[in-house]
């Protein structure tokens, strides 16, 4: 009896792992085999034509790059400074607790709520309109917790001896942070920034009302232009337009591009992190 429970239990766990891996593999597999045949140089570098039923997705690729780089540009300095304060400076438990409440609840807030926040504050209140700027700022706040956590982890993993040596040589706290801690933590902070790009590139709900548009005839000319974006493009192709039989293949192709982009970015970040962990 004990033997049977033992075997059954472990078998259940093994089946769970297999189910998890298989279902995710199947999703990726189906998207790739349907999408890969759509992809060609002209698909990647052309503008959409004939009401999105032909042509490429170049503006959406550019838009996603702009939005996610914009988000990181905005949130990296804020995130790193927060992480430095939390790990190197903060002495008051109450302030740390307040900051943690902010970070943890931002991380748990649904992405569509960020979208409404961006709409109310950046689009309407500050008057940025539906634009690259509004979208980047919204995504920037969304990925702030990712950046802060990665930077904190990186800064914490810098050995204490390095700090002590620097302080013992007469350097001030800020000199130690600037010249010793941050340079050693840089690879880890970059990992966080890359994870942030990956996260921002895949988000749809926050840009629905703040940045994205179904179709533009030109690339954005300024930060105040609206843009196409890969995740929104998939959604729009599936729910708008009048020729679903022509739009679905384009959606498959767009999904492959988005997956390659996001999985590529994330595996680079994860690889960096594991390599670094082994180094210390």
């Amino acid at each position: 009896m004990r033997k049977a429970v033992e075997i059954g239990g472990i078998a259940f766990c093994l089946i769970s792992v297999l189910f998890a891996l298989l279902s995710l593999f199947l999703i990726l597999f189906f998207i790739f085999i349907n999408g890969i045949k759509v992809i060609s140089p002209s698909f990647l570098f052309d503008f959409p034509r004939k009401a999105m039923t032909e042509g490429g997705i170049f503006p959406a690729i550019v838009g996603t790059f702009l939005l996610s780089l914009g988000a990181v540009f905005f949130s990296l300095p804020l995130g790193v400074m927060t992480a430095v304060y939390l790990t190197e400076y903060a002495t008051s438990r109450r302030i740390v607790k307040l900051i943690r409440i902010g970070i943890n609840n931002l991380a748990g807030t649904p992405s569509v709520v960020f979208g409404l926040f961006g709409l109310a504050v950046f689009v309407k209140l500050l008057g940025f309109g539906v634009s690259v700027l509004s979208g980047s700022l919204t995504l920037g706040i969304l990925i702030l917790p990712v950046i802060i956590r990665a930077s904190e982890e990186a800064i914490k993993s810098v050995p204490r001896e390095l700090r002590e040596a620097s302080l013992a040589l007469g350097a001030t706290r800020w000199q130690t942070v600037k010249n010793v801690v941050l340079p050693s933590a840089l690879p880890g902070i970059l990992t966080g920034a890359i994870l942030g790009v990956g996260r921002a590139a895949g988000e749809t709900a926050p840009i629905l009302f703040t940045a994205a548009t179904f179709y533009t005839a030109h690339l954005p000319r300024s930060l105040f232009d609206e843009v196409m974006a890969l995740p929104y493009h998939i959604y729009a192709l599936m729910t708008e337009g009048t020729f679903p039989e022509k739009q679905v293949p384009i959606a498959f192709g767009t999904a492959v591009v988005l997956l390659l982009l996001v999985l590529g970015i994330n595996s680079f970040a994860i690889w960096l992190r594991y390599r670094r962990r082994r180094a210390w």
Binding site: L78, M81, T82, V84, Y85, L86, Y89, A90, I95, L98, I99, I101, G102, I103, N105, L106, T109, V113, F114, L116, F117, A120, V121, L125, I141, L144, P145, I148, T172, R173, W174
Partner: peptide
């Protein structure tokens, strides 16, 4: 040194401020 510390502390409160901004804008609307 103390200016830098105060600056870092202020910036660190940004995530809390954003959270409050979300609450205010959502509930306000």
């Amino acid at each position: 040194e103390s200016i830098i510390e105060i600056l870092l502390c202020t910036v660190s409160l940004f995530s809390l401020v954003s959270l409050m901004g979300i609450v205010l804008s959502i509930f306000g609307e």
